[in-house]
């Protein structure tokens, strides 16, 4: 069913169109954010951003449709499959490094910067500039409470975050069950387990939204509440975005399964999504440990 020669696609319009869409998004986002900060309004930024994002979605849709059609018509051989596998693996590695930057920042401020500001360690003299400031983590009292009012309370790991951990870890199981079902060709079970995974992912997002609202309204834990809030939101925020993306990908895979795509030996896209989902899960475990508990 797969052809002998490596499939080299003919010309394609999608990449350059996608570059233009990306450009529109960047220009739009830049203008929008600058307007927000300068408190000026009436800029065109938001329209550029929306237009770019819409174009991007349409382009990616069309691009992936091309790829899916090629795959379905047997143009891809095993070697092609391996190219995709390498591609996806290294992409996930790049994502790991993206999170590593934020984890690194978290460890640095926790173990070095904040103690120094509080008068401990090699650069403890710095405390001269912040009289009365004491190092603690979570950082409830910041060095300059006027500019960065610290949170009144931080999130209790054993409520929502624990529930979210359970949700996400079990979703890793359900997606594996779906994969197993695919390998033995039981399509109704694939549909079921995938749907369960999407639901678990969405429930996670709902709880996270709830947690954010609580943080802002009740706990005073905000982006502006010092470096604890900053690291908290950047890590959980980017993780949340990845869960969102992963859920969308799962949803697409689910729709494709409904349409009868994939078979026991030929289902790279399916696997790629499961890899991604496991990655998102692992990052969460790191977050739960280092952001919430410790």
């Amino acid at each position: 069913m797969s052809s002998a020669a490596y499939y080299v696609p003919n010309q394609s319009r999608w990449p350059i169109l996608a570059s233009i869409a990306l450009f529109l998004m960047a220009v739009g986002a830049g203008n929008l954010i600058n307007d927000l900060s300068a408190e000026t309004s009436g800029g065109v930024g938001v329209w550029f951003l929306l237009l770019g994002a819409l174009c991007m979605m349409a382009i990616l849709f069309a691009w992936f449709r091309n790829v899916i059609n090629e795959s379905m018509s047997g143009l891809y051989n095993e070697q092609m499959d391996r190219s995709y596998r390498w591609g996806m693996s290294w992409f996930i590695f790049s994502e790991v490094m993206f999170f590593a930057a934020f984890f690194g920042a978290l460890f640095y401020v926790r173990t070095l910067a904040v103690p120094w500001l509080g008068g401990e360690g090699d650069k403890g003299v710095s405390n001269m500039l912040w009289e009365g400031f004491q190092a603690q983590w979570p950082l409830m009292t910041t060095p300059d409470m006027e500019t960065f009012p610290g949170p009144q309370e931080v999130i209790d790991p054993w409520h929502l975050p624990l529930i979210n951990t359970v949700l996400l870890v079990s979703s890793s199981f359900t997606v594996t069950l779906a994969h197993k079902a695919l390998k033995v060709g039981e399509r109704s079970r694939i549909v079921l387990w995938l749907a369960a995974t999407v639901l678990l992912g969405s429930a996670f997002l709902v709880f996270q939204a709830y947690e954010y609202i609580e943080a802002y309204h009740d706990l005073g834990l905000t982006l502006q509440s010092g470096v604890y809030g900053a690291t908290f939101f950047i890590l959980t925020g980017f993780h949340g975005l990845h869960v969102t993306l992963g859920s969308v990908m799962l949803l697409i895979i689910w729709l494709r399964v409904l349409r009868g795509h994939f078979d026991a030996d030929n289902h790279f896209a399916f696997e790629a999504v499961t890899w991604y989902w496991h990655f998102v899960d692992v990052v969460w475990v790191g977050l739960f440990l280092f952001v919430y508990i410790l």
Binding site: I33, L36, S37, S94, E95, M97, F98, A100, A101, F102, A105, V109, A113, V114, L117, S126, L129, W130, L139, T142, P143, D144, T147, F148, T222, L223, Q224, S225, G226, V227, Y228, G229, A230, T231, F233, I234
Partner: peptide, 26 residues
């Protein structure tokens, strides 16, 4: 990706009031 991470932190500090690179917020 690490470069992307660091410019993202800059963006947050500039526009969203975080304090990654500001001692006043830790």
């Amino acid at each position: 990706p690490v470069l992307a991470g660091v410019v993202t932190m800059m963006l947050m500090d500039i526009h969203f009031g975080t304090s990654f690179f500001n001692a006043a917020g830790g």
